[in-house]
Design a binder for these strands. Structure first.
Length: 347
DNA sequence: AAAGCGGGGGG
DNA sequence: CCCCCAGCTTT
């Protein structure tokens, strides 16, 4: 017997018991902590989450506290973590939980799945880790482990592969330790069954059950669908000063970096003359313009190639919100894309 | 099924 | 440079 089968369960649990990473949401797996950690961990590395998780729990220790928090507060706590719809959904779900479930998470896979921001993976993770329910939690790690175990060349990005993998693991979940089995699979993927052709099969507790290893294919699996090319957007980004204040703009409620604050910017790379003309046209009283070092920021599907310009105004521009550098640092959520330009304010 | 949605660490 | 990360939602 080999591949994804019940034979992997005991070796994985024993291996997990023998040692695993010490993660803050593991040592104290209250449902709220597990839920928040799993949302933060979506498409995000464990090491990036640690600091955010600690600060979040300190500021918003339970579901009612999150439900009652201002948008500016929870958005600021998420600043720099990315995929900001996650934090909006987290808050929406907290409000909903207070209204419908007395401020607690339901111990039920389908009710968890119905929460905003909670998909198949997260519902399975919370159900199994926080509530001990025997449901699988199939993330990118588990998909890779499954493809290698079964020597399966189906692209793991295919929906059918994900569905099949969930079903295969659902059939072998142990009733006593489902959360630990799910975490052992993810731990294996994160520390041993590594991506990019670098599996450490010599350290694997289920090597003897791995069809991919047996066939010599562990390093070439899994397959993935080809990814699309990014488009490039040229922008002229402004560090606007008026006295000691800096001018900010809030992004639209939908789309990229929705609702976050940003440095104002114009489409394209404008020359100093073009920029001065454009700003005058907008009614801004420009006192001084200084070019800053250009910067590039890469998102998943678009690249911003940014020319920075320091702009001094005689009077505040009505379209902007003017704040002190300290207020910007402490209370306004600004995406990482603008970091290099904001550092100009620290002189 | 495909596209949109962040940011960073490591090869 | 490219890869991929404890994915979800919308179209």
């Amino acid at each position: 017997m080999s591949g994804v089968s019940k034979a992997i369960v005991q070796p994985l649990l024993s291996w997990y018991d023998a040692g695993h990473r010490d993660l803050p949401w593991r040592s104290e797996p209250a449902p709220y902590r597990v839920w928040v950690s799993e949302i933060m961990l979506q498409q995000t590395r464990v090491e990036a989450v640690r600091g955010y998780f600690s600060r979040w729990m300190n500021a918003l220790p339970d579901i009612p506290a999150l439900a009652a928090a201002d948008e500016a507060v929870y958005t600021k706590l998420w600043e720099g973590l990315g995929y900001y719809s996650r934090v909006r959904n987290l808050h929406r779900a907290a409000v909903l939980l207070c209204e419908e479930y007395g401020g607690e998470l339901p111990a039920d896979y389908d009710r968890l799945l119905a929460l905003p921001g909670v998909g198949e993976y997260t519902a399975g993770a919370v159900a199994s880790i926080a509530f001990g329910l025997p449901v699988p939690a199939v993330d990118g790690n588990v998909l890779r482990v499954a493809a290698r175990l079964d020597n399966d060349f189906t692209p793991i990005t295919d929906a059918k592969f994900k569905k099949q993998t969930r079903e295969r693991f659902a059939a072998l979940m142990p009733s006593d330790r489902p959360g630990d089995l799910n975490q052992s699979l993810m731990e294996l993927g994160a520390t041993v069954c590594l991506p990019n052709g670098a599996p450490r099969c010599g350290d694997c507790p289920i090597q003897h059950l791995c069809e991919g290893f047996h066939r010599g294919n562990a390093a070439v699996l899994p397959l993935r669908a080809a990814k699309k090319a990014r488009r490039v957007e040229n922008r002229t980004v402004l560090v606007v000063r008026c006295g000691q204040l800096v001018g900010l703009r809030q992004r639209p409620k939908k789309g990229l970096l929705a609702g976050l604050w940003e440095l104002p910017s114009l489409d394209g790379h404008l020359s100093p003359d073009e920029l001065r003309a454009a700003l005058t046209e907008m009614g801004w009283s420009v006192r001084k313009l200084l070019s800053l070092r250009p910067a590039k920021h890469i998102f998943t599907h678009v690249e911003w190639h940014m020319n920075g310009v320091y702009v001094e105004l005689d009077a505040p521009a009505p379209a902007l919100t003017f704040v002190t550098p300290a207020e910007l640092r402490d209370a306004y959520a600004l995406p990482s894309a603008f970091r290099s330009f904001v550092s100009v304010l620290e002189d």
